[in-house]
């Protein structure tokens, strides 16, 4: 298990919590829809776990958004990326 860190420090912060709240879904409901444990949704929302591509696409299907609109890429500190 990785140590706890704020979601903002995650290299791939996401909007799962916001989208879930907007859809008025509980973690349990979302977890059932994407086929994971509800704790895993908590980990994802806190940015403590980065999902596999398969899970990311399942989440994008549930929210009806593209993966890029759910997961954001933080710019690395050393410089700009193309």
């Amino acid at each position: 298990m990785t140590g706890r860190r704020p979601a903002s420090e995650s290299p791939f912060p996401n909007r799962i919590a916001e989208l879930r709240e907007r859809a008025k879904m509980s973690r349990l409901e979302l977890a059932e829809l994407v086929g994971v444990n509800s704790q895993t949704i908590g980990y994802l929302e806190r940015g403590e776990y980065n999902p596999s591509l398969a899970l990311a696409f399942r989440l994008s299907d549930v929210f009806g958004l593209t993966v890029e609109k759910i997961f954001v890429r933080n710019q690395p500190k050393g410089g700009k990326r193309r």
Binding site: M1, G35, V36, N37, T40, Y43, Y49, P51, S52, A54, L55
Partner: peptide, 12 residues
């Protein structure tokens, strides 16, 4: 009985 995160954790 485990999802991908739990499996990764267990294997760790």
């Amino acid at each position: 009985q485990l999802d991908e995160r739990e499996l990764a954790a267990r294997n760790g």
